[in-house]
Computed example of a mutant assay.
Amino acid sequence: MRQTGTRDHLITTGLQLLHTRGFHASGVQDIIQAAGVPKGTFYTHFESKEQFGAEVLGRFWEQRAARTIAVLGDETRPPLARLKAWFDAKVTEREDRKVHPGCMIGNFAAELAVDSRLVRDRLASIFAAWTTLLAATIREAVAAGQITIALPPETVAAFLVDAFEGSVLRSKVDRDPTALRRLREVVFTTILVEKAAA
């Protein structure tokens, strides 16, 4: 396995392990055993487990962002329909899972934001990017005359990210996506309300 391939393999393996078990519950030994590599190989590519965690979190966001962009950037659909489709995909994703590990972004925020500046900075950049993606589509919906909002799109988008993470946490506790369904209902009946046709 090439060096770059080994690093990628470690991150891919770590993504699965850290998402299902959590950062603190997954030691370096667990990671290298799952990846099938010697411990020295791990430290050839990562200075610490903290750095590894930040890289795994970055990979998780890359995958999440790609799916989000695919839905929100689909210009064959009106912007409000794209926002609804994004929420629907999140509900379906959790309906299809037998295990509910939660969102790695929220999990890492709870586990590491206090102790790790590196992970905290990575989380901050993820939340900012996520907010920007949602805000752009909300702005499109306003410009298209589909919705009216009393606050700037960035403020509404940041609230949606916050509310989403809270709903995922509740879904993790309840072991079902009811909290996400409830969030979707509230959002599209009280915040992003479609204007009646003139």
Rank of each mutant, 00 (worst) to 15 (best):
Arg122Asp: 03
Leu112Pro: 07
Thr155Phe: 07
Asp74Ala: 08
Ala124Asp: 15
Cys103Asp: 15
Thr155Gly: 01
Asp74Glu: 12
Val71Ala: 09
Phe87Val: 00
Arg94Ser: 02
Phe108Met: 14
Thr131Glu: 15
Ala85Thr: 11
Glu165Pro: 02
Trp86Met: 09
Thr155Asn: 05
Glu93Met: 03
Asp176His: 13
Ala143Asp: 15
Val99Cys: 03
Phe159Cys: 09
Ala128Tyr: 06
Pro177Phe: 10
Ala163Asp: 03
Leu80Gly: 04
Ala66Val: 00
Ala113Cys: 01
Ala65His: 13
Leu134Pro: 05
Phe87Met: 14
Leu118Glu: 14
Leu72Phe: 09
Lys84Ala: 11
Glu140Arg: 13
Ala85Trp: 04
Gly166Cys: 06
Pro101His: 08
Asp121Leu: 13
Val71Phe: 04
Ser116Glu: 06
Pro101Glu: 09
Gly73His: 01
Leu123Ala: 11
Arg139Trp: 02
Leu133Lys: 04
Arg120Pro: 04
Asp74Lys: 03
Trp86Arg: 07
Arg139Pro: 00
Cys103Met: 11
Glu93Ser: 05
His100Asn: 08
Leu169Glu: 12
Val99Asp: 13
Ala150Glu: 15
Leu83Thr: 05
Thr92Ser: 10
Pro153Leu: 04
Arg67Ala: 14
Ile69Pro: 00
Arg94His: 13
Thr76Ala: 13
Val156Tyr: 03
Phe87His: 09
Leu112Cys: 14
Val91Trp: 02
Ile149Thr: 13
Trp130Glu: 14
Glu95Leu: 09
Arg67Cys: 05
Glu154Ser: 08
Thr137Arg: 06
Asp121His: 09
Leu118Cys: 02
Ala150Thr: 13
Ser167Leu: 07
Ala85Tyr: 02
Val114Glu: 15
Val99Tyr: 02
Asp121Phe: 04
Ser167Met: 04
Leu123Tyr: 11
Leu133Ala: 12
Ala144Lys: 08
Met104Ile: 12
Asp121Met: 14
Cys103Pro: 04
Asp115Pro: 00
Trp86Ser: 04
Ala150His: 10
Leu80Pro: 02
Thr76Asp: 10
Glu111Leu: 09
Glu93Pro: 03
Arg97Leu: 10
Leu169His: 11
Asp74His: 02
Leu134Lys: 01
Gly102Glu: 06
Phe108Pro: 08
Ile126Thr: 07
Leu80His: 08
Ala89Lys: 03
Ala70Asn: 06
Ala109Asp: 14
Ala144Tyr: 13
Ala129Tyr: 00
Leu169Tyr: 13
Leu160Asp: 01
Ile147Asn: 06
Glu75Gln: 08
Arg97Gly: 03
Lys172Cys: 09
Arg139Gln: 15
Lys84Trp: 02
Thr137Phe: 04
Pro78Ile: 07
Lys172His: 08
